[in-house]
Amino acid sequence: MNFVPTILLGLCLIAPPRDITAPGFKKVTHQVVVENPKEFEDWLVVAATHLGPSHVTVVEPGVPFSYSSKYGTVLYALPQGTAVPSSQDNRRVPRSEFEGFLSASPPVTHPSAVSSMSPVDRVLTTIRITNISNEGIELEALRTQEFDSDGESVGWLRIWAIPGGIVLLGIAGLVFLRRRRRRRKTTQG
């Protein structure tokens, strides 16, 4: 029996690699939508992923694009008229193709995996570009929405109403059992 805490402690100290989903978790599809990429007329905003499957997308207002924290999706601002680097023959677009362009990581805070019990299947983060200058791109996260596999929005109540009720039931049961035990003790005493 004494080996159980040792094993648990050992595992506790091992940080899981980024691409391994811990038991009880599932991956969710992550998307980002930019509200105002056309507000900055001198620039063309592009989202690119350099690791894993290659994605280069010209960002349109209100149109979601795939985001991956694992593969490092980055937003680039290219001066208008610049040819957008694109993949040929399904080959990955190297990061060097984007060298010298302004870039920023989307401010996405939602985890890439959620509890396997969660109805959440897709997460959409809406961001806004506050400034593009030679200093860089400034982004602001506006909201994060969660959707189930049918595309319905998932609210806080839907996620936690049943588990919350179960916790209350458990607490009530424990209090009842504790009281009954004390009553028995008093009767016997």
Partner: peptide, 26 residues
């Protein structure tokens, strides 16, 4: 049964909620 009714949903909340960064083992 009652102990699990209390801890299971809370653990699920910790895994799924804003304290996600706490991690599975802690």
């Amino acid at each position: 049964l009652c102990v699990n009714l209390c801890t299971h949903p809370v653990a699920s909340f910790l895994l799924n909620g804003p304290w996600h960064g706490l991690g599975f083992w802690p």
